[in-house]
């Protein structure tokens, strides 16, 4: 068993190969943020639709490593239907978790918990984080 197995969990590989909510919409109601990581070539765009305080929809498109692509996919899946405040708390919690900072373990990160192993690989924290930072930024645009 390789140490890397903590990083490349089955769920991550599954999302990497079959990303959910993939493809952007040309719909003015969506807020869009694109983040590129110039050092590694990751390029991630997140779109959110928030109505009546609820994240109604998340769309994403990601090119890059498996961790960044899977992370965008998992994010899109768990955020749809969440109240705004909860969505922000979850994103904050996820970012703390992957960067090995204190985080609230009582909050249910659902499938995103598989990224728990990222903290053992400091060089990969950014890969896991980009989509979540972009997501938070779309909400700030509200």
């Amino acid at each position: 068993m390789s140490n890397l197995d903590n990083l490349y969990r089955e769920i991550i590989m599954e999302h990497y190969k079959n990303p959910r909510n993939k493809g952007l919409l040309a719909d003015d109601r969506y807020k869009t943020i694109r983040i590129k990581n110039p050092s590694c070539g990751d390029d991630i765009t997140i779109q959110t639709l928030v109505e009546e305080g609820i994240v109604k929809d998340v769309r994403q498109i990601a090119t890059g490593c498996s961790i960044s692509v899977a992370s965008a996919s998992v994010l899109s899946e768990i955020m749809i239907g969440k109240p705004l405040k909860e969505a922000l708390d979850l994103a904050e919690n996820f970012l703390n978790m992957v960067s090995n900072k204190a985080f609230d373990e009582s909050l249910d990160l659902e499938e995103a918990e598989v990224f728990n192993g990222v903290k053992q690989f400091p060089a990969r924290i950014k890969c896991a984080s980009i989509a979540w930072v972009a997501f938070k930024d779309t909400l700030k645009k509200e």
Binding site: N3, L7, G41, S66, I67
Partner: peptide, 12 residues
């Protein structure tokens, strides 16, 4: 294999 995935193997 994206380069950033491969590099983690070498780093290990």
């Amino acid at each position: 294999v994206p380069a950033h995935d491969a590099i983690s193997y070498y780093a290990e």
